[in-house]
Amino acid sequence: MLSLIRGRVKMLAIAALVVLLIIIPLQGNAYYTSVLIIIGIHAIVTVGLCLLMGYTGQVSLGQAAFYGLGAYIAAVLSKTYHLNPWLAMAVAIIATAAFAFAIGFPIFRLRGNYLAMATLGLGIIIWILFRELDWITGGQPGFLDIPTLSIGGFAFDSDLSFYYLVWGFCIAVMFISQNIVNSRIGRAMRAIRDSESASQSLGINTIMVKAKILALSAAYAALAGSLYAYYVGFIDPPPFGFLFSIRLVAMAVVGGLASIWGAIFGAATVRLLTEFLHPFGDIDTVLFGLLLMVIIILSPQGVTRGLGDIWRRLSRRLSPS
Protein backbone atom coordinates (compact mmCIF):
# COMPACT_ATOMS: atom_id res chain seq x y z
CA MET A 1 0.00 0.00 0.00
CA LEU A 2 2.72 2.39 1.02
CA SER A 3 4.74 1.56 -2.07
CA LEU A 4 1.62 2.17 -4.14
CA ILE A 5 1.24 5.65 -2.67
CA ARG A 6 4.93 6.29 -3.13
CA GLY A 7 4.57 5.17 -6.73
CA ARG A 8 1.67 7.59 -7.24
CA VAL A 9 3.65 10.45 -5.73
CA LYS A 10 6.54 9.61 -7.99
CA MET A 11 4.35 9.52 -11.09
CA LEU A 12 2.90 12.90 -10.10
CA ALA A 13 6.36 14.33 -9.58
CA ILE A 14 7.47 13.07 -12.97
CA ALA A 15 4.34 14.45 -14.62
CA ALA A 16 5.00 17.80 -12.95
CA LEU A 17 8.59 17.71 -14.16
CA VAL A 18 7.51 17.01 -17.71
CA VAL A 19 4.95 19.84 -17.66
CA LEU A 20 7.56 22.14 -16.18
CA LEU A 21 10.04 21.19 -18.87
CA ILE A 22 7.49 21.96 -21.55
CA ILE A 23 6.63 25.41 -20.26
CA ILE A 24 10.01 26.62 -19.00
CA PRO A 25 11.47 27.66 -22.36
CA LEU A 26 8.37 29.69 -23.15
CA GLN A 27 9.79 32.42 -20.90
CA GLY A 28 11.87 33.29 -23.91
CA ASN A 29 15.25 33.93 -22.29
CA ALA A 30 17.76 32.48 -24.74
CA TYR A 31 20.46 32.12 -22.11
CA TYR A 32 18.30 29.99 -19.80
CA THR A 33 17.24 27.84 -22.70
CA SER A 34 20.82 27.16 -23.74
CA VAL A 35 21.77 26.26 -20.16
CA LEU A 36 18.80 23.89 -19.98
CA ILE A 37 19.86 22.22 -23.22
CA ILE A 38 23.31 21.54 -21.78
CA ILE A 39 21.75 20.24 -18.55
CA GLY A 40 19.60 17.84 -20.55
CA ILE A 41 22.63 16.60 -22.49
CA HIS A 42 24.63 16.07 -19.31
CA ALA A 43 21.72 14.37 -17.58
CA ILE A 44 21.65 11.75 -20.34
CA VAL A 45 25.32 10.89 -19.70
CA THR A 46 24.80 10.95 -15.95
CA VAL A 47 21.98 8.38 -16.03
CA GLY A 48 24.32 5.95 -17.72
CA LEU A 49 26.92 6.54 -15.06
CA CYS A 50 24.30 5.96 -12.36
CA LEU A 51 23.37 2.62 -13.90
CA LEU A 52 27.02 1.65 -13.97
CA MET A 53 28.24 3.05 -10.65
CA GLY A 54 25.15 3.24 -8.49
CA TYR A 55 23.28 0.11 -9.54
CA THR A 56 26.04 -2.18 -10.74
CA GLY A 57 28.75 -0.87 -8.42
CA GLN A 58 31.39 -0.40 -11.13
CA VAL A 59 33.43 2.79 -11.24
CA SER A 60 34.06 4.68 -14.44
CA LEU A 61 36.42 7.62 -14.42
CA GLY A 62 36.52 7.76 -18.21
CA GLN A 63 32.91 8.31 -19.16
CA ALA A 64 33.77 11.56 -20.96
CA ALA A 65 35.61 9.49 -23.57
CA PHE A 66 32.35 7.81 -24.67
CA TYR A 67 30.71 11.21 -24.76
CA GLY A 68 33.58 12.42 -26.96
CA LEU A 69 33.45 9.36 -29.19
CA GLY A 70 29.76 10.03 -29.82
CA ALA A 71 30.44 13.66 -30.62
CA TYR A 72 33.40 13.02 -32.92
CA ILE A 73 31.93 10.07 -34.79
CA ALA A 74 28.67 11.94 -35.44
CA ALA A 75 30.52 15.10 -36.43
CA VAL A 76 33.04 13.43 -38.73
CA LEU A 77 30.50 11.18 -40.43
CA SER A 78 28.00 13.96 -41.05
CA LYS A 79 30.48 16.61 -42.11
CA THR A 80 33.43 14.83 -43.73
CA TYR A 81 31.44 11.92 -45.16
CA HIS A 82 28.17 13.77 -45.70
CA LEU A 83 26.16 11.12 -43.95
CA ASN A 84 22.65 12.08 -42.88
CA PRO A 85 23.10 13.52 -39.35
CA TRP A 86 20.50 11.16 -37.86
CA LEU A 87 22.23 8.19 -39.43
CA ALA A 88 25.59 9.52 -38.24
CA MET A 89 24.13 9.76 -34.75
CA ALA A 90 22.86 6.19 -34.88
CA VAL A 91 26.24 4.94 -36.10
CA ALA A 92 27.98 6.93 -33.36
CA ILE A 93 25.77 5.38 -30.69
CA ILE A 94 26.11 1.84 -31.98
CA ALA A 95 29.86 2.07 -32.60
CA THR A 96 30.55 3.57 -29.19
CA ALA A 97 28.39 0.98 -27.46
CA ALA A 98 30.10 -1.83 -29.38
CA PHE A 99 33.50 -0.47 -28.44
CA ALA A 100 32.50 -0.24 -24.77
CA PHE A 101 31.07 -3.76 -24.86
CA ALA A 102 34.31 -5.11 -26.33
CA ILE A 103 36.59 -3.44 -23.80
CA GLY A 104 34.20 -4.47 -21.03
CA PHE A 105 35.50 -8.03 -21.09
CA PRO A 106 39.15 -7.32 -20.29
CA ILE A 107 38.44 -4.30 -18.13
CA PHE A 108 35.85 -5.95 -15.87
CA ARG A 109 38.32 -8.56 -14.80
CA LEU A 110 39.42 -5.66 -12.62
CA ARG A 111 37.62 -4.38 -9.57
CA GLY A 112 37.50 -1.32 -7.34
CA ASN A 113 40.67 0.73 -7.42
CA TYR A 114 42.18 -1.06 -10.39
CA LEU A 115 39.02 -0.63 -12.42
CA ALA A 116 38.99 3.06 -11.54
CA MET A 117 42.57 3.47 -12.76
CA ALA A 118 41.91 1.49 -15.92
CA THR A 119 38.89 3.60 -16.86
CA LEU A 120 40.80 6.76 -16.03
CA GLY A 121 43.62 5.62 -18.31
CA LEU A 122 41.22 4.62 -21.06
CA GLY A 123 39.59 8.03 -20.93
CA ILE A 124 42.94 9.75 -21.26
CA ILE A 125 44.10 7.53 -24.14
CA ILE A 126 40.97 8.30 -26.13
CA TRP A 127 41.31 11.97 -25.30
CA ILE A 128 44.90 11.92 -26.60
CA LEU A 129 43.59 10.39 -29.82
CA PHE A 130 41.04 13.20 -30.22
CA ARG A 131 43.93 15.62 -29.92
CA GLU A 132 46.51 13.82 -32.04
CA LEU A 133 44.52 12.31 -34.91
CA ASP A 134 44.12 15.83 -36.26
CA TRP A 135 43.59 14.81 -39.87
CA ILE A 136 40.34 13.20 -38.75
CA THR A 137 39.31 15.16 -35.67
CA GLY A 138 40.72 18.60 -36.37
CA GLY A 139 43.02 18.20 -33.36
CA GLN A 140 43.53 21.07 -30.94
CA PRO A 141 41.99 23.80 -33.13
CA GLY A 142 38.79 21.82 -33.30
CA PHE A 143 36.29 20.55 -35.81
CA LEU A 144 34.05 23.19 -37.40
CA ASP A 145 30.76 23.49 -39.24
CA ILE A 146 29.02 20.36 -38.05
CA PRO A 147 25.65 20.16 -39.79
CA THR A 148 22.47 20.29 -37.76
CA LEU A 149 19.65 17.82 -37.37
CA SER A 150 16.45 18.16 -39.35
CA ILE A 151 13.28 16.23 -40.02
CA GLY A 152 11.75 16.66 -43.45
CA GLY A 153 12.04 20.38 -44.02
CA PHE A 154 12.21 21.24 -40.31
CA ALA A 155 15.69 21.96 -39.00
CA PHE A 156 16.54 21.87 -35.30
CA ASP A 157 18.55 25.04 -35.69
CA SER A 158 16.88 27.18 -33.04
CA ASP A 159 17.59 26.77 -29.34
CA LEU A 160 13.92 26.27 -28.63
CA SER A 161 13.50 23.37 -31.06
CA PHE A 162 16.77 21.80 -29.90
CA TYR A 163 15.63 22.15 -26.33
CA TYR A 164 12.57 20.00 -26.96
CA LEU A 165 14.63 17.51 -28.92
CA VAL A 166 17.22 17.10 -26.14
CA TRP A 167 14.65 16.84 -23.35
CA GLY A 168 12.58 14.44 -25.39
CA PHE A 169 15.59 12.16 -25.63
CA CYS A 170 16.39 12.75 -21.98
CA ILE A 171 12.94 11.75 -20.74
CA ALA A 172 12.98 8.70 -23.01
CA VAL A 173 16.36 7.67 -21.60
CA MET A 174 15.05 8.12 -18.06
CA PHE A 175 12.04 5.87 -18.70
CA ILE A 176 14.13 3.23 -20.44
CA SER A 177 16.61 3.24 -17.57
CA GLN A 178 13.88 3.05 -14.96
CA ASN A 179 12.39 0.05 -16.76
CA ILE A 180 15.74 -1.69 -16.94
CA VAL A 181 16.40 -1.09 -13.27
CA ASN A 182 13.03 -2.63 -12.40
CA SER A 183 13.65 -5.70 -14.53
CA ARG A 184 15.49 -8.96 -14.30
CA ILE A 185 18.60 -7.16 -15.60
CA GLY A 186 18.26 -4.54 -12.88
CA ARG A 187 18.10 -7.25 -10.25
CA ALA A 188 21.23 -8.85 -11.63
CA MET A 189 22.96 -5.45 -11.58
CA ARG A 190 22.17 -4.86 -7.92
CA ALA A 191 23.11 -8.43 -7.09
CA ILE A 192 26.52 -7.88 -8.68
CA ARG A 193 26.95 -4.70 -6.69
CA ASP A 194 26.17 -6.51 -3.42
CA SER A 195 28.06 -9.77 -4.00
CA GLU A 196 29.75 -10.78 -7.19
CA SER A 197 30.58 -14.30 -6.06
CA ALA A 198 27.00 -15.01 -4.98
CA SER A 199 25.74 -13.66 -8.31
CA GLN A 200 28.04 -16.02 -10.19
CA SER A 201 26.88 -18.92 -8.03
CA LEU A 202 23.30 -18.22 -9.14
CA GLY A 203 24.19 -18.50 -12.81
CA ILE A 204 24.74 -14.83 -13.60
CA ASN A 205 27.56 -14.16 -16.04
CA THR A 206 28.70 -11.09 -14.13
CA ILE A 207 31.28 -9.88 -16.65
CA MET A 208 28.67 -10.10 -19.41
CA VAL A 209 26.14 -8.09 -17.41
CA LYS A 210 28.75 -5.48 -16.52
CA ALA A 211 29.90 -5.22 -20.13
CA LYS A 212 26.30 -4.77 -21.29
CA ILE A 213 25.68 -2.00 -18.79
CA LEU A 214 28.94 -0.33 -19.77
CA ALA A 215 27.78 -0.53 -23.38
CA LEU A 216 24.40 0.94 -22.46
CA SER A 217 26.00 3.79 -20.52
CA ALA A 218 28.35 4.38 -23.45
CA ALA A 219 25.37 4.47 -25.81
CA TYR A 220 23.75 7.15 -23.65
CA ALA A 221 27.02 9.09 -23.54
CA ALA A 222 27.37 8.84 -27.32
CA LEU A 223 23.78 10.00 -27.82
CA ALA A 224 24.49 12.99 -25.60
CA GLY A 225 27.82 13.63 -27.31
CA SER A 226 26.31 13.67 -30.77
CA LEU A 227 23.51 15.97 -29.58
CA TYR A 228 26.18 18.26 -28.19
CA ALA A 229 28.09 18.27 -31.49
CA TYR A 230 24.96 19.07 -33.48
CA TYR A 231 23.88 21.72 -31.01
CA VAL A 232 27.15 23.62 -30.77
CA GLY A 233 28.27 22.95 -34.33
CA PHE A 234 31.89 22.87 -33.23
CA ILE A 235 33.91 20.45 -31.10
CA ASP A 236 37.46 20.41 -29.75
CA PRO A 237 39.14 18.08 -27.24
CA PRO A 238 38.84 19.97 -23.89
CA PRO A 239 35.17 19.19 -23.06
CA PHE A 240 35.85 15.45 -23.40
CA GLY A 241 38.80 15.18 -21.04
CA PHE A 242 39.49 13.82 -17.59
CA LEU A 243 37.93 16.78 -15.82
CA PHE A 244 34.60 16.22 -17.48
CA SER A 245 34.68 12.57 -16.45
CA ILE A 246 35.07 13.69 -12.85
CA ARG A 247 32.40 16.31 -13.29
CA LEU A 248 30.07 13.55 -14.47
CA VAL A 249 30.87 11.56 -11.36
CA ALA A 250 29.99 14.68 -9.35
CA MET A 251 26.64 14.94 -11.15
CA ALA A 252 25.90 11.30 -10.41
CA VAL A 253 26.92 11.62 -6.76
CA VAL A 254 24.91 14.80 -6.20
CA GLY A 255 21.80 13.23 -7.71
CA GLY A 256 22.30 9.98 -5.84
CA LEU A 257 24.36 7.22 -7.42
CA ALA A 258 21.47 4.79 -7.38
CA SER A 259 18.80 7.17 -8.54
CA ILE A 260 17.64 7.51 -12.13
CA TRP A 261 15.68 10.72 -11.84
CA GLY A 262 18.27 12.16 -9.48
CA ALA A 263 20.57 12.40 -12.49
CA ILE A 264 18.61 15.39 -13.76
CA PHE A 265 18.94 17.05 -10.37
CA GLY A 266 22.68 16.30 -10.26
CA ALA A 267 23.32 17.54 -13.79
CA ALA A 268 21.30 20.68 -13.11
CA THR A 269 23.02 21.43 -9.81
CA VAL A 270 26.52 21.02 -11.20
CA ARG A 271 25.76 23.04 -14.34
CA LEU A 272 23.99 25.82 -12.51
CA LEU A 273 26.83 26.11 -10.00
CA THR A 274 29.22 26.48 -12.90
CA GLU A 275 27.04 29.12 -14.50
CA PHE A 276 26.57 31.12 -11.29
CA LEU A 277 30.21 30.92 -10.30
CA HIS A 278 31.54 31.65 -13.76
CA PRO A 279 32.22 35.34 -13.04
CA PHE A 280 34.48 34.32 -10.15
CA GLY A 281 36.85 32.20 -12.22
CA ASP A 282 37.41 28.50 -11.58
CA ILE A 283 35.79 28.49 -8.18
CA ASP A 284 33.24 25.97 -9.40
CA THR A 285 35.85 23.22 -9.63
CA VAL A 286 36.93 23.90 -6.04
CA LEU A 287 33.34 23.51 -5.04
CA PHE A 288 32.86 20.26 -6.97
CA GLY A 289 35.84 18.78 -5.22
CA LEU A 290 34.33 19.73 -1.89
CA LEU A 291 30.85 18.61 -2.91
CA LEU A 292 32.11 15.19 -3.93
CA MET A 293 33.82 14.64 -0.62
CA VAL A 294 31.10 16.09 1.58
CA ILE A 295 28.18 14.38 -0.11
CA ILE A 296 29.76 10.97 -0.37
CA ILE A 297 30.79 11.10 3.30
CA LEU A 298 27.59 12.55 4.75
CA SER A 299 24.94 11.23 2.40
CA PRO A 300 26.17 8.53 0.02
CA GLN A 301 22.61 8.21 -1.28
CA GLY A 302 22.89 11.64 -2.83
CA VAL A 303 21.39 14.99 -2.04
CA THR A 304 17.87 14.10 -3.11
CA ARG A 305 17.75 11.09 -0.80
CA GLY A 306 19.60 13.00 1.88
CA LEU A 307 16.97 15.73 1.82
CA GLY A 308 14.31 13.04 1.85
CA ASP A 309 15.84 11.55 4.98
CA ILE A 310 15.91 14.89 6.70
CA TRP A 311 12.30 15.52 5.70
CA ARG A 312 11.25 12.14 7.01
CA ARG A 313 13.05 12.68 10.30
CA LEU A 314 11.50 16.11 10.66
CA SER A 315 7.99 14.97 9.87
CA ARG A 316 8.34 12.08 12.28
CA ARG A 317 9.39 14.47 14.99
CA LEU A 318 6.59 16.90 14.19
CA SER A 319 3.77 14.39 13.91
CA PRO A 320 2.25 13.40 17.26
CA SER A 321 2.85 9.67 17.62
Binding site: I180, R184, A188, S195, S197, A198, L202, I204
Partner: peptide
Protein backbone atom coordinates in the same frame (compact mmCIF):
# COMPACT_ATOMS: atom_id res chain seq x y z
CA UNK B 1 26.47 -13.57 1.02
CA UNK B 2 22.91 -12.35 0.63
CA UNK B 3 22.34 -9.24 -1.44
CA UNK B 4 22.02 -6.97 1.55
CA UNK B 5 20.53 -3.93 -0.15
CA UNK B 6 17.74 -5.89 -1.81
CA UNK B 7 14.46 -7.24 -0.50
CA UNK B 8 14.17 -10.87 0.55
CA UNK B 9 11.96 -11.59 -2.44
CA UNK B 10 14.38 -9.89 -4.84
CA UNK B 11 17.16 -12.06 -3.47
CA UNK B 12 15.23 -15.17 -4.43
CA UNK B 13 14.19 -13.66 -7.76
CA UNK B 14 17.87 -13.20 -8.62
CA UNK B 15 18.12 -16.96 -8.29
CA UNK B 16 15.74 -17.24 -11.24
CA UNK B 17 17.92 -15.05 -13.43
CA UNK B 18 19.36 -17.89 -15.43
CA UNK B 19 15.94 -19.60 -15.68
CA UNK B 20 14.47 -16.59 -17.46
CA UNK B 21 15.74 -14.89 -20.53
CA UNK B 22 14.01 -11.66 -21.53
CA UNK B 23 16.76 -9.22 -22.38
CA UNK B 24 17.71 -5.63 -22.01
CA UNK B 25 15.49 -4.52 -24.91
CA UNK B 26 12.36 -6.22 -23.59
CA UNK B 27 13.11 -4.66 -20.26
CA UNK B 28 13.76 -1.20 -21.65
CA UNK B 29 10.53 -1.05 -23.65
CA UNK B 30 8.39 -3.21 -21.36
Amino acid sequence: RLFGNMSVLDNVMVGLHSRSKYGILSAAFR
